[in-house]
Nucleic acid binder design. Structure first.
Lengths: 156, 156
DNA sequence: GTTTATGCAAACTGTTTGCATTGCT
DNA sequence: AGCAATGCAAACAGTTTGCATAAAC
């Protein structure tokens, strides 16, 4: 996904404006950090990365901005076993960012994987269709987690 | 799964003893509540159901017991978007309890579904095999969530 | 009798909220 | 100018911990 459009503005500016939201320094910085991020970040992580660039942005703003972005569908929020929330830019099931998680139940490490997207897609297509019909539920997103023991923990 | 073995003791007694753990009143009551539960419960839920039967059991014990049971693999702990933990008796992918979740992003309602177990199994078998080989990860469990809008929320 | 499990109260962590102020548009 | 967005400090919710006591084995 290109970072900027023809006029040099980041791709999300229009999205914000389209929702009647203001493009503030804080929001710019937070979206910038999320765009650069190679993996899911906690609110604290984001705060730590935004703060040096934009010291006027506090942790509260980070939380409030993330809530807005999640509601817009721009960002995914997920929670693993420890109850802490993690955030990452949203992406459809075919996009390069699409991935799922292996979670070590012992050391709590989270490994991203991008394998099996094709098999997954096939299964999900069936499931989503059936579920939305049976439960009258509009599916916008899905998450798959495998729990178990990571390489280090299983050998100790 | 039968609730009691030939001698009338609940099925989990041996499991506890086998791990060198004591079979206390509190643990009995908590496991009993979990066995009867028709869906996932929060720690608070469990406390509320255990307390009338066994008023000496406090919330702290509920948490400590749940931690033990999760570590033993007897109970699954899961966390949805709100950061609260939910608990339910564990069950393998073929067992009657096996199910996954539809989560409404608006009202936070969680719907259990048991459909598509066969298609799921096929996909999971491939994925688990490949993932455990590639990442040297021992998979013991998995979770699938579909996020979206429930019937009520999508029409309002 | 020894050791594990527990209750209680207090600490902790991540997140949310109220309110006066700032800063987009 | 007008209203949305923000910082700060305080509130909050769920969960965890320390320590003296009680209950299993």
């Amino acid at each position: 996904m290109p970072r900027n459009n023809r006029r040099g503005s980041p791709w999300w500016q229009g999205q914000l404006r389209g929702c009647g939201l203001r493009v503030t320094l804080g929001r710019k910085a937070i979206l910038d950090v999320l765009t650069r991020a190679e993996k899911h970040l906690s609110a604290e992580d984001i705060y730590m990365r935004v703060h040096p660039l934009c010291p006027s942005v506090g942790l509260t703003t980070v939380y409030r901005t993330l809530e807005v972005l999640v509601n817009m569908g721009l960002v995914n929020k997920m929670v693993f076993g420890d109850g802490r929330a993690w955030y990452e830019l949203a992406a459809g099931p075919r996009k390069e960012r699409h991935h799922h998680h292996l979670i070590c139940t012992k050391c709590k490490r989270v490994i991203d994987y991008t394998d099996f997207i094709d098999e997954e897609l096939e299964f999900l297509k069936k499931a989503e269709k059936g579920l939305s019909k049976k439960y009258h539920f509009d599916i916008t997103n899905h998450e798959i987690q495998f729990n178990g023991l990571c390489e280090k923990c299983r050998s100790s």
